[in-house]
């Protein structure tokens, strides 16, 4: 595809999608959103170049390796499983800490969030892998 509108839009829309994806990821535990939806949005942001210019731009210029994303995601998921054991409890036990930040108020962080980030990366990887395998000759 060779559309000027799309190519110029790509510069801005990519970042907007990425930020939106991060917001969806972070609010995911208690509100609509989460790793899967955030991952799809972020994956879309990363393959935007592929739609606007050429799929080679994704793998060559930006040096994105989809299998690597999946690996990082799985690693994060695995790490989040281990916290339960390390704290002397059973596998996958969720552990929560709450921080009191000066401006934002109370922030709750827990191991399910790490799991969510893992899902986020796996979904990005799968989205890119799918796109590349359809585009590649």
């Amino acid at each position: 595809m060779n559309s000027v509108i799309l190519q110029i839009a790509a510069r801005y829309v990519r970042w907007m999608l990425l930020i939106f994806a991060l917001v969806a990821l972070i609010r995911g535990h208690n509100y609509p959103g989460g790793g899967f939806i955030g991952g799809l949005l972020a994956g879309l942001a990363l393959i935007y170049d592929g739609f606007a210019f050429d799929h080679k731009r994704i793998s060559k210029k930006r040096k994105i390796n989809p299998v690597g994303y999946i690996g990082v995601g799985l690693l994060l998921i695995f790490i989040s499983l281990l916290f339960g054991i390390l704290s002397g409890d059973v596998l996958m036990k969720g552990i929560w800490i709450s921080l009191n930040l000066p401006l934002l108020g109370q922030l709750k962080l827990g191991t399910p969030f790490i799991f969510d980030i893992g899902v986020f990366f796996v979904v990005i990887g799968i989205t890119i892998l799918f796109f590349l395998s359809l585009k590649r000759r």
Binding site: G68, L75, F78, L81, V90
Partner: peptide
Amino acid sequence: MNCVALPILIPLVLMIMQIFF
């Protein structure tokens, strides 16, 4: 320690290692 999950955890770790190395 309860080792029931080992048959799942070992392949998961191995899969991750195969992706990286």
